[in-house]
Structures are given as C-alpha cells and as structure tokens.
C-alpha cells in the first residue's frame, strides 16, 4: 500500500506537468483554433532556462523561475507576432500557421542543440532534495511543489476564464472572431497574449519536470504528445479537463511501468493507446463543455 501511495504521488506530479502542457495547448487553441505543436519545445526551453539561470549562474530559485518564464512570455509573444500573425492577417487557411509553428518546432530544437552540448543538463530541485510524509502518503519535495504550483496555475486559469472580463474576451474570440472584433475586442492583443501565456505555462511545465528528467533537447516531442493526450482525455471544452486528463494519463503510465511485464520503454505507448481509445469511445473527453 505504501508502495502504491508513493507511486500515486509521483504520478500526480507528472500528471500535473502533462496538465500544464495540455493547458498550454488550450490557451492557444481556444482563441485561435490553432493546435500548436511547439508547446513541447516551449517546455524544453523552460527546462534549459532553468539550467542556464539556476544551475550555471546559480540564481535563487524564485528569481530564476520568474526570469525564465518572462523570457518564455517574450518568445511566445514574438513567435505569434513574426510567424502567426502575418498568416492570419493575410487570411491564410488555418493549416498555414499550424505548419509554420511545426517549422518553429525544428527551429527551437536545433537552436538549442547547436548552442548546448547534446547531453542531458541538470536542473536543480525547487526546494532541494528531501521527502515529505503525511501518514502513509509520502513523496519528494519536488512532487509536492509541482502539485502545488500546478493547482495554483489551474485555479488562476479557471478564475481568469470564468470570472474576469479579459477571460470573457478570450472566449468571445474563440466563439466568433468577427463579432468579437466588432464588440471592440483587440484581436491582435488577445492572440499575442494567448501565445505568451501558452509559452509561460508550457515553460513552467518544463521547468518543473526538468529536475527529474534533466534538460534535454529532445524532451519536447514526448511532452507534446502527453500534453495533447491529456487534453483529449479530459476534453477540450473545459480548463479543468487538461488537469484531469493529465493525472489519469500519468497514473496509467506509472502503473504500466510498475506492474506490466514489458520493458519500461514501452510505457511511451500508453499515450497512443489512450488517445485511440478515447477518440473511439469518448471523443468529447470526460468533461463536457458547458452548454
């Protein structure tokens, strides 16, 4: 039982990271309709931000975290400005910005791989090494830190979309671009913000997972797959869906690694299988969008 709780806490922490990546998809998908394959690479950039600022320059964790995420906000916003907006303004089909972002996946990854050596780079734990135990439930500091930060981010995102005017503006753009523009919503600003925020959330995911996996230039694609699967499991209609989906996916992965009699590398097949099952049986995801 102890063993299971240990596994559950670890799974919850990885599930939170998948949820963050899923949320990063959602932040861009909602107002623009664009599936942004670059979220995984943004997470990778977040991890490398952690390596440079926290490991190399040894900045205090909160400062390094804020600066790294600030840089990602700028990267996300400028990606939108340079690559996505010209296409949207030209009235190109939706596929065009999606493909351009796909090109950016390679640009981000290859830039990192040409600047840094190809080995995994260490990133420090937020609260140092150590374990926390509540009765039978125990886990590392980093697990609990990840869970706490993620819950805060999701609460913030939920509050933003459900309770604030700016969040409503995002929703309005998602529902009908022209009508939203006619109501005085600044489309360009909403789009730039959605990309910036998406990059921050994805980068946060990368920064949180990096102490366990190290910063590695190929880490983006698996995270992009896991985050998307989380989104499909939970349902794209609701913000909480991404978190729920992420937790379920991580639990399924960990149980497979722990109990299934197959090499642990095959756990990479879990997202694919879940993706197929959910697309076949419940394409709207577990949580339905509010009517």
């Amino acid at each position: 039982m102890q063993d299971f709780f240990e596994l559950a806490v670890g799974a919850a922490a990885s599930g939170c990271v998948y949820g963050l990546i899923g949320l990063a998809y959602l932040l861009v998908l909602r107002p623009t309709g664009i599936i942004n394959f670059a979220v995984g690479e943004w997470a990778m950039l977040g991890a490398f931000g952690g390596f440079v600022l926290l490991t190399k320059y040894e900045w205090p964790y909160p400062l390094g975290m804020v600066v790294a995420l600030g840089i990602l906000f700028v990267i996300g916003g400028s990606t939108e400005r340079i690559v996505v907006r010209p296409l949207v303004e030209k009235g190109a089909p939706l596929l065009a910005p999606i493909l351009a972002l796909l090109g950016m996946v390679v640009v981000y990854r290859e830039t990192i791989s040409s600047v840094f050596p190809p080995d995994p780079m260490p990133v420090p734990y937020a609260l140092g090494m150590g374990r926390l135990e509540f009765g039978p439930v125990g886990g590392t500091y980093q697990s609990f830190f990840t869970i706490g930060v993620t819950l805060a981010v999701f609460t913030g995102a939920w509050f933003f979309f459900e309770r604030t005017l700016a969040g409503r503006a995002f929703e309005a753009v998602a529902l009908h671009r022209r009508a939203a523009a006619l109501m005085g919503i600044n489309l360009s600003r909403v789009m730039a913000l959605s990309f910036g925020a998406g990059a921050v959330v994805a980068g946060l995911g990368g920064l949180l997972v990096a102490p366990n996996t190290s910063a590695y230039y190929l880490m983006g694609v698996p995270l992009a797959i896991q985050g998307f699967t989380a989104l499909v499991i939970g349902g794209v209609g609701r913000v909480e869906g991404a978190l729920l989906g992420g937790l379920l996916l991580a639990l399924a992965e960990q149980l497979t690694v722990r109990y299934a009699p197959i090499p642990s590398g095959y756990a990479q097949g879990v997202p694919l299988v879940l993706l197929m099952v959910f697309l076949l049986l419940r394409p709207t995801g577990l949580l339905k969008a509010k009517g």
């Binding site: 694609v221 699967t229 095959y266 697309l279």
Partner: peptide, 23 residues
C-alpha cells in the same frame, strides 16, 4: 479513430506512433 473528428488528431496520433515505433 483519428478520422472521426475534425482537427489534427491524426497528426498527434501519428507523432505518437512514430515515437513508439522507434522504442
């Protein structure tokens, strides 16, 4: 499964398949 819905499900599903194949 991927073709049942509109959108880019096939892209992500095949990305996962490609990744898994190497594993």
């Amino acid at each position: 499964p991927s073709a049942r819905l509109e959108g880019f499900y096939l892209a992500l599903a095949t990305l996962a398949l490609g990744q898994l194949f190497i594993v």
